[in-house]
Design a protein around this nucleic acid. Sequence first.
DNA 1: TTAATTTGTAATATTTCTGTAACATTAAGA
DNA 2: TCTTAATGTTACAGAAATATTACAAATTAA
Lengths: 226, 226
Amino acid sequence: MKGKIFIIEDEASIIQLVQHNLEKEGFVVSSSLNGNEGLKELKKFEPNLLLLDWMLPDLSGIDICKNIRRDSNFKSLPIIMLTAKGEEEDKIKGLESGVDDYVTKPFSFNELSARIKAVLRRSDPKVVANELIFEDLKLDRTEKRVFRSDKEIQLGPTEFRLLEFFLTNPKRVYSRDQILETVWPNNVNVESRTIDVHIRRLRQSINIEGKKELIRTVRASGYSLI
Amino acid sequence: MKGKIFIIEDEASIIQLVQHNLEKEGFVVSSSLNGNEGLKELKKFEPNLLLLDWMLPDLSGIDICKNIRRDSNFKSLPIIMLTAKGEEEDKIKGLESGVDDYVTKPFSFNELSARIKAVLRRSDPKVVANELIFEDLKLDRTEKRVFRSDKEIQLGPTEFRLLEFFLTNPKRVYSRDQILETVWPNNVNVESRTIDVHIRRLRQSINIEGKKELIRTVRASGYSLI
DNA sequence: TTAATTTGTAATATTTCTGTAACATTAAGA
DNA sequence: TCTTAATGTTACAGAAATATTACAAATTAA
Protein backbone atom coordinates (compact mmCIF):
# COMPACT_ATOMS: atom_id res chain seq x y z
CA MET A 1 0.00 0.00 0.00
CA LYS A 2 1.51 3.27 -1.11
CA GLY A 3 -1.52 5.39 -0.44
CA LYS A 4 -5.08 6.01 -1.53
CA ILE A 5 -6.08 7.88 -4.65
CA PHE A 6 -9.55 8.96 -5.64
CA ILE A 7 -10.55 9.72 -9.22
CA ILE A 8 -13.45 11.87 -10.39
CA GLU A 9 -13.66 11.61 -14.16
CA ASP A 10 -16.56 11.03 -16.51
CA GLU A 11 -14.73 9.04 -19.16
CA ALA A 12 -14.85 5.46 -18.02
CA SER A 13 -11.98 4.50 -20.29
CA ILE A 14 -9.65 6.94 -18.58
CA ILE A 15 -10.67 5.74 -15.17
CA GLN A 16 -10.04 2.19 -16.19
CA LEU A 17 -6.59 2.90 -17.58
CA VAL A 18 -5.49 5.02 -14.66
CA GLN A 19 -7.02 2.92 -11.92
CA HIS A 20 -5.58 -0.30 -13.23
CA ASN A 21 -2.08 1.08 -13.54
CA LEU A 22 -2.12 2.84 -10.21
CA GLU A 23 -3.23 -0.34 -8.52
CA LYS A 24 -0.36 -2.15 -10.17
CA GLU A 25 1.93 0.39 -8.55
CA GLY A 26 0.45 -0.41 -5.17
CA PHE A 27 -2.02 2.42 -4.68
CA VAL A 28 -5.50 1.77 -3.39
CA VAL A 29 -7.84 3.43 -5.85
CA SER A 30 -11.51 4.35 -5.85
CA SER A 31 -13.39 6.44 -8.37
CA SER A 32 -16.60 8.12 -9.38
CA LEU A 33 -18.05 9.11 -12.73
CA ASN A 34 -19.72 12.30 -11.57
CA GLY A 35 -19.12 15.24 -9.33
CA ASN A 36 -21.79 15.20 -6.68
CA GLU A 37 -21.56 11.56 -5.82
CA GLY A 38 -17.81 11.72 -6.17
CA LEU A 39 -17.59 14.35 -3.49
CA LYS A 40 -19.52 12.19 -1.06
CA GLU A 41 -17.58 9.04 -1.76
CA LEU A 42 -14.31 10.88 -1.63
CA LYS A 43 -14.94 12.12 1.86
CA LYS A 44 -15.73 8.64 3.00
CA PHE A 45 -12.70 7.19 1.24
CA GLU A 46 -10.20 9.69 2.68
CA PRO A 47 -7.68 9.57 -0.14
CA ASN A 48 -4.14 10.90 -0.04
CA LEU A 49 -4.68 12.54 -3.41
CA LEU A 50 -7.46 13.39 -5.84
CA LEU A 51 -7.39 13.19 -9.63
CA LEU A 52 -10.07 15.53 -10.82
CA ASP A 53 -11.46 16.02 -14.29
CA TRP A 54 -11.91 19.63 -15.30
CA MET A 55 -15.14 19.13 -17.19
CA LEU A 56 -17.82 17.05 -15.58
CA PRO A 57 -21.45 16.59 -16.53
CA ASP A 58 -22.85 18.02 -13.32
CA LEU A 59 -20.37 20.00 -11.26
CA SER A 60 -17.32 21.66 -12.75
CA GLY A 61 -13.97 20.55 -11.46
CA ILE A 62 -13.44 23.97 -10.03
CA ASP A 63 -16.59 23.80 -7.94
CA ILE A 64 -15.53 20.49 -6.52
CA CYS A 65 -12.19 21.95 -5.80
CA LYS A 66 -13.68 24.86 -3.92
CA ASN A 67 -16.01 22.62 -1.99
CA ILE A 68 -13.09 20.51 -0.88
CA ARG A 69 -11.03 23.49 0.15
CA ARG A 70 -13.88 24.75 2.26
CA ASP A 71 -14.08 21.46 4.16
CA SER A 72 -11.61 21.64 6.98
CA ASN A 73 -11.02 17.91 6.82
CA PHE A 74 -9.80 18.13 3.25
CA LYS A 75 -8.33 21.57 3.10
CA SER A 76 -4.94 20.20 2.29
CA LEU A 77 -5.91 17.24 0.13
CA PRO A 78 -3.59 17.37 -2.89
CA ILE A 79 -5.48 17.71 -6.16
CA ILE A 80 -4.26 17.06 -9.68
CA MET A 81 -6.54 18.43 -12.36
CA LEU A 82 -7.04 16.63 -15.65
CA THR A 83 -7.69 19.15 -18.41
CA ALA A 84 -8.32 18.75 -22.10
CA LYS A 85 -6.01 20.51 -24.49
CA GLY A 86 -7.12 24.02 -25.32
CA GLU A 87 -8.26 24.78 -21.81
CA GLU A 88 -4.92 26.47 -21.39
CA GLU A 89 -6.36 29.78 -20.31
CA ASP A 90 -8.14 28.12 -17.50
CA LYS A 91 -4.98 26.73 -16.08
CA ILE A 92 -4.06 29.70 -14.04
CA LYS A 93 -7.53 29.95 -12.67
CA GLY A 94 -7.26 26.32 -11.72
CA LEU A 95 -4.05 26.76 -9.87
CA GLU A 96 -5.44 29.74 -8.04
CA SER A 97 -8.38 27.72 -6.86
CA GLY A 98 -6.05 25.45 -5.01
CA VAL A 99 -5.00 22.79 -7.47
CA ASP A 100 -1.55 21.35 -6.89
CA ASP A 101 -0.79 20.38 -10.46
CA TYR A 102 -2.53 19.67 -13.72
CA VAL A 103 -2.06 17.22 -16.55
CA THR A 104 -3.40 17.81 -20.04
CA LYS A 105 -5.14 15.06 -21.96
CA PRO A 106 -4.10 13.04 -23.68
CA PHE A 107 -1.45 11.97 -21.23
CA SER A 108 0.66 8.87 -20.89
CA PHE A 109 0.29 6.95 -17.70
CA ASN A 110 3.95 7.45 -16.90
CA GLU A 111 3.56 11.17 -17.12
CA LEU A 112 0.63 11.12 -14.74
CA SER A 113 2.35 8.74 -12.40
CA ALA A 114 5.38 11.00 -12.22
CA ARG A 115 3.21 13.99 -11.37
CA ILE A 116 1.34 12.08 -8.72
CA LYS A 117 4.52 11.04 -7.04
CA ALA A 118 5.95 14.53 -7.21
CA VAL A 119 2.88 16.01 -5.59
CA LEU A 120 2.74 13.32 -2.93
CA ARG A 121 6.40 13.73 -2.18
CA ARG A 122 5.74 17.36 -1.40
CA SER A 123 2.50 16.97 0.48
CA ASP A 124 2.84 13.66 2.26
CA PRO A 125 6.28 12.09 1.92
CA LYS A 126 5.43 8.97 3.88
CA VAL A 127 3.08 7.87 1.18
CA VAL A 128 5.82 7.49 -1.41
CA ALA A 129 8.93 7.20 0.74
CA ASN A 130 11.03 4.14 0.21
CA GLU A 131 11.98 3.72 3.84
CA LEU A 132 9.38 3.92 6.53
CA ILE A 133 10.84 4.35 9.97
CA PHE A 134 9.29 4.40 13.40
CA GLU A 135 11.48 4.27 16.46
CA ASP A 136 13.76 1.27 15.93
CA LEU A 137 11.57 -0.23 13.26
CA LYS A 138 12.49 0.17 9.60
CA LEU A 139 10.69 -1.05 6.50
CA ASP A 140 12.32 -0.87 3.08
CA ARG A 141 9.82 -0.94 0.27
CA THR A 142 12.06 -1.66 -2.71
CA GLU A 143 14.06 -4.30 -0.93
CA LYS A 144 11.00 -5.61 0.87
CA ARG A 145 12.84 -5.95 4.12
CA VAL A 146 11.99 -5.13 7.70
CA PHE A 147 14.38 -4.45 10.55
CA ARG A 148 13.95 -4.02 14.26
CA SER A 149 17.00 -2.50 15.89
CA ASP A 150 18.99 -3.39 12.76
CA LYS A 151 18.08 -7.02 13.07
CA GLU A 152 16.27 -8.32 10.01
CA ILE A 153 12.82 -9.73 10.50
CA GLN A 154 11.03 -12.13 8.21
CA LEU A 155 7.41 -11.35 7.45
CA GLY A 156 4.83 -13.01 5.24
CA PRO A 157 3.23 -10.88 2.54
CA THR A 158 0.16 -9.97 4.58
CA GLU A 159 2.11 -9.10 7.69
CA PHE A 160 4.38 -6.95 5.53
CA ARG A 161 1.47 -4.99 4.09
CA LEU A 162 -0.07 -4.68 7.53
CA LEU A 163 3.08 -3.21 9.00
CA GLU A 164 3.53 -0.93 5.99
CA PHE A 165 0.02 0.32 6.61
CA PHE A 166 0.64 1.07 10.25
CA LEU A 167 3.93 2.76 9.45
CA THR A 168 2.31 5.30 7.15
CA ASN A 169 0.34 6.56 10.13
CA PRO A 170 1.96 5.72 13.40
CA LYS A 171 -0.02 6.34 16.55
CA ARG A 172 -3.29 6.53 14.69
CA VAL A 173 -5.84 3.93 15.69
CA TYR A 174 -7.44 1.94 12.89
CA SER A 175 -10.59 -0.07 13.14
CA ARG A 176 -10.63 -3.61 11.82
CA ASP A 177 -12.78 -2.44 8.95
CA GLN A 178 -10.35 0.26 7.98
CA ILE A 179 -7.52 -2.21 8.10
CA LEU A 180 -9.43 -4.66 5.96
CA GLU A 181 -10.24 -2.03 3.38
CA THR A 182 -6.70 -0.93 2.81
CA VAL A 183 -4.53 -3.89 3.58
CA TRP A 184 -6.56 -6.59 1.90
CA PRO A 185 -7.03 -6.71 -1.86
CA ASN A 186 -10.35 -5.21 -2.94
CA ASN A 187 -13.48 -7.29 -2.75
CA VAL A 188 -11.99 -10.02 -0.64
CA ASN A 189 -14.18 -11.07 2.21
CA VAL A 190 -12.49 -12.11 5.40
CA GLU A 191 -13.76 -12.28 8.93
CA SER A 192 -12.84 -9.25 10.93
CA ARG A 193 -11.43 -11.51 13.64
CA THR A 194 -8.90 -12.71 11.11
CA ILE A 195 -7.13 -9.43 11.67
CA ASP A 196 -6.54 -10.32 15.29
CA VAL A 197 -4.64 -13.34 14.15
CA HIS A 198 -2.51 -11.35 11.76
CA ILE A 199 -1.86 -8.77 14.42
CA ARG A 200 -0.70 -11.56 16.65
CA ARG A 201 1.61 -12.89 13.95
CA LEU A 202 3.00 -9.45 13.28
CA ARG A 203 3.54 -8.84 16.99
CA GLN A 204 5.30 -12.13 17.35
CA SER A 205 7.66 -11.28 14.52
CA ILE A 206 8.56 -7.72 15.43
CA ASN A 207 8.78 -8.14 19.18
CA ILE A 208 12.35 -9.00 19.85
CA GLU A 209 13.90 -9.78 23.18
CA GLY A 210 14.15 -6.84 25.51
CA LYS A 211 12.38 -4.39 23.22
CA LYS A 212 9.00 -2.98 23.94
CA GLU A 213 5.72 -3.95 22.36
CA LEU A 214 4.98 -1.78 19.31
CA ILE A 215 1.38 -2.55 18.54
CA ARG A 216 -1.24 -1.21 20.85
CA THR A 217 -4.70 -2.68 21.24
CA VAL A 218 -7.40 -0.10 21.69
CA ARG A 219 -10.33 -1.95 23.05
CA ALA A 220 -13.52 -1.45 21.05
CA SER A 221 -11.64 0.63 18.47
CA GLY A 222 -8.87 -1.30 16.86
CA TYR A 223 -5.10 -1.25 16.76
CA SER A 224 -2.32 1.24 16.31
CA LEU A 225 1.42 1.37 16.07
CA ILE A 226 1.99 2.52 19.65
CA MET B 1 21.55 -3.35 -22.38
CA LYS B 2 23.93 -0.72 -21.15
CA GLY B 3 21.39 1.98 -20.54
CA LYS B 4 18.90 4.26 -22.21
CA ILE B 5 19.71 7.54 -23.93
CA PHE B 6 17.25 10.10 -25.19
CA ILE B 7 18.08 12.67 -27.85
CA ILE B 8 16.31 15.96 -28.48
CA GLU B 9 17.79 17.50 -31.62
CA ASP B 10 16.19 19.07 -34.67
CA GLU B 11 18.73 17.98 -37.25
CA ALA B 12 17.66 14.55 -38.37
CA SER B 13 21.08 13.76 -39.76
CA ILE B 14 22.70 14.20 -36.38
CA ILE B 15 20.10 12.04 -34.69
CA GLN B 16 20.64 9.34 -37.24
CA LEU B 17 24.40 9.35 -36.87
CA VAL B 18 24.37 9.41 -33.09
CA GLN B 19 21.50 7.01 -32.59
CA HIS B 20 22.91 4.42 -34.91
CA ASN B 21 26.33 4.47 -33.32
CA LEU B 22 25.03 4.47 -29.77
CA GLU B 23 22.85 1.50 -30.54
CA LYS B 24 25.87 -0.28 -31.95
CA GLU B 25 27.49 0.27 -28.56
CA GLY B 26 24.57 -1.38 -26.82
CA PHE B 27 22.55 1.60 -25.67
CA VAL B 28 18.82 1.75 -26.11
CA VAL B 29 18.11 5.03 -27.85
CA SER B 30 15.01 7.08 -28.49
CA SER B 31 14.75 10.59 -29.89
CA SER B 32 12.58 13.53 -30.74
CA LEU B 33 12.92 16.35 -33.23
CA ASN B 34 11.33 19.03 -31.09
CA GLY B 35 11.23 20.26 -27.57
CA ASN B 36 7.67 19.97 -26.34
CA GLU B 37 7.03 16.50 -27.60
CA GLY B 38 10.52 15.49 -26.65
CA LEU B 39 9.86 16.41 -23.05
CA LYS B 40 6.82 14.19 -22.89
CA GLU B 41 8.41 11.24 -24.62
CA LEU B 42 11.50 11.58 -22.50
CA LYS B 43 9.52 11.27 -19.32
CA LYS B 44 7.86 8.20 -20.64
CA PHE B 45 11.12 6.70 -21.81
CA GLU B 46 12.98 7.29 -18.55
CA PRO B 47 16.47 7.50 -19.99
CA ASN B 48 19.73 7.31 -18.10
CA LEU B 49 21.02 10.33 -19.99
CA LEU B 50 19.76 13.09 -22.26
CA LEU B 51 21.50 14.60 -25.29
CA LEU B 52 19.97 18.00 -25.75
CA ASP B 53 20.35 20.45 -28.60
CA TRP B 54 20.88 24.02 -27.54
CA MET B 55 18.79 25.56 -30.30
CA LEU B 56 15.43 24.03 -31.02
CA PRO B 57 12.56 25.32 -33.13
CA ASP B 58 10.10 25.58 -30.26
CA LEU B 59 11.61 25.44 -26.81
CA SER B 60 15.17 26.41 -26.08
CA GLY B 61 17.43 23.77 -24.66
CA ILE B 62 17.72 25.75 -21.51
CA ASP B 63 13.97 25.77 -20.96
CA ILE B 64 13.84 22.03 -21.33
CA CYS B 65 16.67 21.75 -18.94
CA LYS B 66 14.88 23.82 -16.34
CA ASN B 67 11.67 21.91 -16.79
CA ILE B 68 13.51 18.67 -16.19
CA ARG B 69 15.26 19.96 -13.11
CA ARG B 70 11.96 21.02 -11.66
CA ASP B 71 10.50 17.55 -12.04
CA SER B 72 11.52 15.57 -9.01
CA ASN B 73 11.60 12.37 -11.00
CA PHE B 74 14.26 13.72 -13.31
CA LYS B 75 16.09 16.11 -11.06
CA SER B 76 19.28 14.16 -11.42
CA LEU B 77 18.99 13.04 -15.03
CA PRO B 78 22.40 13.72 -16.59
CA ILE B 79 22.22 16.11 -19.53
CA ILE B 80 24.78 16.72 -22.24
CA MET B 81 24.13 19.83 -24.25
CA LEU B 82 24.93 20.01 -27.96
CA THR B 83 25.92 23.55 -28.91
CA ALA B 84 26.95 25.10 -32.19
CA LYS B 85 30.30 26.80 -32.37
CA GLY B 86 30.17 30.44 -31.40
CA GLU B 87 27.69 29.86 -28.64
CA GLU B 88 30.66 29.84 -26.33
CA GLU B 89 29.39 32.65 -24.16
CA ASP B 90 26.30 30.68 -23.41
CA LYS B 91 28.24 27.78 -22.10
CA ILE B 92 28.57 29.02 -18.60
CA LYS B 93 24.92 29.85 -18.45
CA GLY B 94 24.18 26.34 -19.61
CA LEU B 95 26.25 24.73 -16.95
CA GLU B 96 24.62 26.86 -14.34
CA SER B 97 21.24 25.67 -15.41
CA GLY B 98 22.19 22.15 -14.49
CA VAL B 99 23.87 20.72 -17.56
CA ASP B 100 26.47 18.07 -16.87
CA ASP B 101 28.61 18.60 -19.94
CA TYR B 102 28.46 20.05 -23.42
CA VAL B 103 29.83 19.13 -26.81
CA THR B 104 30.26 21.67 -29.62
CA LYS B 105 29.20 20.85 -33.13
CA PRO B 106 30.60 19.59 -35.29
CA PHE B 107 31.79 16.72 -33.18
CA SER B 108 33.09 13.25 -33.94
CA PHE B 109 31.07 10.38 -32.62
CA ASN B 110 34.04 9.18 -30.63
CA GLU B 111 34.25 12.47 -28.84
CA LEU B 112 30.58 12.39 -27.95
CA SER B 113 30.75 8.78 -26.90
CA ALA B 114 33.64 9.50 -24.58
CA ARG B 115 31.74 12.36 -22.96
CA ILE B 116 28.65 10.26 -22.54
CA LYS B 117 30.57 7.54 -20.82
CA ALA B 118 32.39 9.98 -18.62
CA VAL B 119 29.15 11.57 -17.47
CA LEU B 120 27.48 8.22 -16.93
CA ARG B 121 30.48 6.95 -15.06
CA ARG B 122 30.05 9.81 -12.63
CA SER B 123 26.31 9.71 -12.32
CA ASP B 124 25.45 6.06 -12.62
CA PRO B 125 28.52 3.88 -12.93
CA LYS B 126 26.62 0.63 -13.30
CA VAL B 127 25.21 1.74 -16.62
CA VAL B 128 28.53 1.88 -18.40
CA ALA B 129 30.69 -0.35 -16.30
CA ASN B 130 32.13 -3.22 -18.19
CA GLU B 131 32.38 -5.36 -15.11
CA LEU B 132 29.44 -5.72 -12.80
CA ILE B 133 30.45 -7.00 -9.43
CA PHE B 134 28.44 -8.07 -6.43
CA GLU B 135 30.16 -9.83 -3.60
CA ASP B 136 32.10 -12.68 -5.19
CA LEU B 137 30.12 -12.55 -8.39
CA LYS B 138 31.58 -10.86 -11.45
CA LEU B 139 30.05 -10.36 -14.87
CA ASP B 140 32.11 -9.10 -17.79
CA ARG B 141 29.93 -7.48 -20.41
CA THR B 142 32.34 -7.31 -23.33
CA GLU B 143 33.74 -10.76 -22.85
CA LYS B 144 30.39 -12.18 -21.85
CA ARG B 145 31.83 -14.13 -19.00
CA VAL B 146 30.66 -14.72 -15.47
CA PHE B 147 32.73 -15.69 -12.47
CA ARG B 148 31.86 -16.75 -8.95
CA SER B 149 34.82 -16.58 -6.63
CA ASP B 150 37.12 -16.43 -9.68
CA LYS B 151 35.72 -19.65 -11.02
CA GLU B 152 34.20 -19.22 -14.44
CA ILE B 153 30.56 -20.12 -14.85
CA GLN B 154 28.77 -21.02 -18.07
CA LEU B 155 25.43 -19.39 -18.64
CA GLY B 156 22.96 -19.51 -21.51
CA PRO B 157 22.10 -16.18 -23.14
CA THR B 158 18.88 -15.69 -21.17
CA GLU B 159 20.47 -16.51 -17.85
CA PHE B 160 23.27 -14.09 -18.71
CA ARG B 161 20.85 -11.24 -19.35
CA LEU B 162 18.90 -12.14 -16.25
CA LEU B 163 21.98 -11.97 -14.08
CA GLU B 164 23.12 -8.76 -15.76
CA PHE B 165 19.75 -7.28 -14.92
CA PHE B 166 19.94 -8.26 -11.28
CA LEU B 167 23.50 -6.96 -11.05
CA THR B 168 22.52 -3.47 -12.16
CA ASN B 169 20.31 -3.22 -9.09
CA PRO B 170 21.35 -5.59 -6.39
CA LYS B 171 19.04 -6.01 -3.41
CA ARG B 172 16.10 -4.52 -5.19
CA VAL B 173 13.10 -6.79 -5.57
CA TYR B 174 11.70 -7.16 -9.05
CA SER B 175 8.32 -8.56 -9.93
CA ARG B 176 8.04 -11.17 -12.64
CA ASP B 177 6.45 -8.54 -14.86
CA GLN B 178 9.33 -6.16 -14.41
CA ILE B 179 11.79 -8.91 -15.16
CA LEU B 180 9.91 -9.88 -18.27
CA GLU B 181 9.79 -6.32 -19.50
CA THR B 182 13.48 -5.71 -19.25
CA VAL B 183 15.16 -9.05 -19.72
CA TRP B 184 13.07 -10.39 -22.55
CA PRO B 185 13.11 -8.80 -26.00
CA ASN B 186 10.18 -6.43 -26.42
CA ASN B 187 6.78 -7.77 -27.27
CA VAL B 188 7.66 -11.36 -26.65
CA ASN B 189 4.99 -13.18 -24.77
CA VAL B 190 6.11 -15.69 -22.25
CA GLU B 191 4.35 -17.09 -19.26
CA SER B 192 5.35 -15.37 -16.07
CA ARG B 193 6.00 -18.79 -14.54
CA THR B 194 8.71 -19.28 -17.09
CA ILE B 195 10.80 -16.92 -15.06
CA ASP B 196 10.78 -19.32 -12.15
CA VAL B 197 12.43 -21.86 -14.35
CA HIS B 198 15.10 -19.45 -15.50
CA ILE B 199 15.70 -18.37 -11.94
CA ARG B 200 16.20 -21.98 -11.06
CA ARG B 201 18.67 -22.45 -13.90
CA LEU B 202 20.54 -19.33 -12.91
CA ARG B 203 20.64 -20.41 -9.30
CA GLN B 204 21.90 -23.80 -10.24
CA SER B 205 24.73 -22.28 -12.23
CA ILE B 206 25.91 -19.60 -9.83
CA ASN B 207 25.56 -21.56 -6.62
CA ILE B 208 28.86 -23.23 -6.11
CA GLU B 209 29.81 -25.54 -3.29
CA GLY B 210 30.13 -23.87 0.07
CA LYS B 211 29.02 -20.44 -1.09
CA LYS B 212 25.77 -18.89 -0.08
CA GLU B 213 22.64 -18.56 -2.19
CA LEU B 214 22.62 -15.25 -4.04
CA ILE B 215 19.08 -15.02 -5.32
CA ARG B 216 16.33 -14.30 -2.87
CA THR B 217 12.72 -15.25 -3.41
CA VAL B 218 10.29 -12.70 -2.06
CA ARG B 219 6.97 -14.39 -1.91
CA ALA B 220 4.19 -12.46 -3.64
CA SER B 221 6.69 -9.92 -4.94
CA GLY B 222 9.40 -11.47 -7.04
CA TYR B 223 13.12 -12.02 -6.82
CA SER B 224 16.21 -10.06 -5.94
CA LEU B 225 19.94 -10.48 -5.88
CA ILE B 226 20.14 -11.04 -2.14
C1' DT C 1 22.31 -31.89 -42.40
C1' DT C 2 22.98 -33.55 -37.79
C1' DA C 3 24.09 -32.83 -33.13
C1' DA C 4 24.07 -29.99 -29.25
C1' DT C 5 22.27 -26.42 -26.70
C1' DT C 6 18.75 -23.46 -25.23
C1' DT C 7 13.89 -22.22 -24.35
C1' DG C 8 9.21 -22.25 -22.92
C1' DT C 9 5.54 -24.84 -20.90
C1' DA C 10 2.96 -28.10 -18.51
C1' DA C 11 2.68 -31.32 -14.87
C1' DT C 12 3.94 -32.45 -10.27
C1' DA C 13 6.06 -31.75 -5.77
C1' DT C 14 7.00 -28.89 -2.07
C1' DT C 15 6.81 -25.03 0.77
C1' DT C 16 4.68 -21.27 2.89
C1' DC C 17 0.82 -18.63 3.92
C1' DT C 18 -4.14 -17.78 5.21
C1' DG C 19 -8.40 -17.85 7.26
C1' DT C 20 -11.23 -19.90 10.63
C1' DA C 21 -12.88 -22.16 14.51
C1' DA C 22 -12.29 -23.37 19.16
C1' DC C 23 -10.75 -22.29 23.46
C1' DA C 24 -8.26 -19.04 26.80
C1' DT C 25 -7.61 -14.79 28.82
C1' DT C 26 -8.46 -10.06 29.91
C1' DA C 27 -10.89 -5.76 30.86
C1' DA C 28 -14.91 -3.12 32.22
C1' DG C 29 -19.22 -2.38 34.13
C1' DA C 30 -23.03 -4.01 37.00
C1' DT D 1 -17.02 -10.21 42.57
C1' DC D 2 -19.41 -11.77 38.73
C1' DT D 3 -20.78 -11.41 34.04
C1' DT D 4 -20.06 -10.44 29.56
C1' DA D 5 -17.98 -8.76 25.58
C1' DA D 6 -13.71 -8.12 23.42
C1' DT D 7 -9.28 -9.68 22.47
C1' DG D 8 -5.44 -13.26 22.72
C1' DT D 9 -3.75 -17.74 21.41
C1' DT D 10 -3.41 -22.07 19.15
C1' DA D 11 -3.80 -25.54 15.81
C1' DC D 12 -5.01 -27.01 11.48
C1' DA D 13 -6.77 -27.74 6.82
C1' DG D 14 -7.06 -25.78 2.48
C1' DA D 15 -5.19 -22.41 -0.64
C1' DA D 16 -1.69 -20.11 -2.95
C1' DA D 17 2.91 -19.45 -4.42
C1' DT D 18 7.12 -21.31 -5.64
C1' DA D 19 10.44 -25.21 -6.80
C1' DT D 20 11.51 -28.92 -9.56
C1' DT D 21 11.39 -31.99 -13.34
C1' DA D 22 10.83 -33.60 -17.84
C1' DC D 23 10.09 -32.88 -22.50
C1' DA D 24 9.25 -31.08 -27.09
C1' DA D 25 10.10 -27.23 -30.02
C1' DA D 26 13.27 -23.87 -31.48
C1' DT D 27 17.72 -22.22 -32.15
C1' DT D 28 22.62 -22.54 -32.82
C1' DA D 29 26.87 -24.91 -33.72
C1' DA D 30 29.41 -28.42 -36.01
